[in-house]
């Protein structure tokens, strides 16, 4: 993530009416005055915010990677689509309760050619992760670290992964950023000091996207790293949580993510309870942050149990195959 401000002629793609720059606040990756009742914590992707009316509605003008600017709006705690994300009975859109995770299914060792591989489904989000290494540095040798291994991550999305065909599977700003996040996550978990002057490649591909892409990638990559036999401090488990009607919702699906929920992604090393990565790009009252992180950690621990089971089952299968 680069700290950079953009100055563009802002213009809504729907009505083509220009928005004067004076009405916009430039956004960088900055935490505005933490004493303010709302955390104003935005990404670099967010370009500008139109001055909120009455301080409660903010309009985020978001730039797409290509094409015109798009205008979208969100309410601080509500949702824009008018969908009831959490019913009075406590059901979510897809019938889950607030703390329930989506169904997780996984397989390890799906490819023989790679050193490690895994396939993971979390609800309708499906990801494939492949690990090569540790091997000696390829490409520019200058990146070599004499005390530890370098982790190289690449995140991509299949062109068929979304409802509308995606034109550019990787290399856009979003994917680059995601790759960076994955790299940071795994540098915190893999015991890189055991392999000095070498490189570990992690490739993750989203086959079908339905929300929580980052966390599914982390979970799949964890299995792949374990499959490759690379020592890690612990499983890295990730989960997104959102905040609706004073309740944290675990493991958001796409409909919820796009419904204007303030969501938080958290990658956890569950045994020690260390946080490998925490990322949030929405406004949230600071009083609620604690509860949200707490919910995210519980959800991550749930994921870790599932992953552990998958690993054990895989080991059993493998040992049966090898005749032990």
């Amino acid at each position: 993530m680069r700290k950079k401000t953009y100055q563009l002629p802002l213009c809504c793609c729907r009505c083509n009416v220009g928005i004067p720059i004076a009405d916009c606040i430039q956004i960088r990756l900055v935490i505005y005055n933490p004493k303010c009742i709302y955390y104003k914590y935005f990404w670099a992707v967010c370009l500008a915010i139109v001055l909120p009316e009455k301080g409660r509605m903010g309009n985020v003008v978001r730039r797409r990677t290509r094409g015109a600017l798009r205008c979208s709006s969100f309410e601080v705690c509500g949702n824009m689509a008018g969908l009831e994300l959490l019913s009075d009975q406590g059901y979510r859109l897809d019938g889950r309760k607030a703390t329930e995770l989506r169904k997780v299914q996984a397989r390890m060792g799906v490819f023989a050619q790679a050193d490690g591989s895994a396939y993971l489904e979390q609800g309708n989000t499906k990801a494939l992760a492949v690990v090569y290494g540790p091997h000696e540095m390829r490409g520019s040798r200058s990146r070599t670290r004499h005390d530890r291994a370098v982790i190289n991550c690449q995140y991509s999305m299949a062109t068929f992964s979304t409802a509308e065909r995606k034109r550019r599977p990787h290399g856009d700003r979003k994917s680059t950023e995601m790759s960076l996040h994955l790299k940071q996550t795994f540098e915190a978990a893999v015991m890189t000091q055991l392999y000095p002057r070498s490189q570990i490649d992690i490739y993750v591909k989203i086959l079908q996207s339905d929300g929580g892409n980052y966390s599914v990638c982390v979970n799949a990559a964890t299995l792949a790293v374990i499959d490759a036999g690379i020592p890690m401090r612990d499983y890295v488990c990730a989960c997104t949580v959102g905040f609706v009607d004073e309740t944290p919702l675990a493991d958001l699906c796409y409909a919820e993510e796009s419904g204007g929920v303030s969501s938080l992604a958290l990658a956890l090393l569950p045994r020690g309870g260390q946080i490998a990565l925490l990322q949030m790009d929405a406004r949230l009252h600071q009083d609620h942050l604690e509860a949200l992180i707490e919910a995210a950690m519980t959800a991550c621990k749930g994921v870790s149990k599932v992953l552990d089971e998958v690993v054990r089952q895989h080991l059993e299968e493998v040992s049966v195959l090898s005749g032990e």
Binding site: L93, D94, G95, R96, E100, R102, K103, G123, N124, A163, E164, D210, C253, A255
Partner: peptide, 9 residues
């Protein structure tokens, strides 16, 4: 757009 949503029973 054709959208597939999960539905838990």
């Amino acid at each position: 757009v054709r959208v597939v949503r999960e539905h838990y029973l």
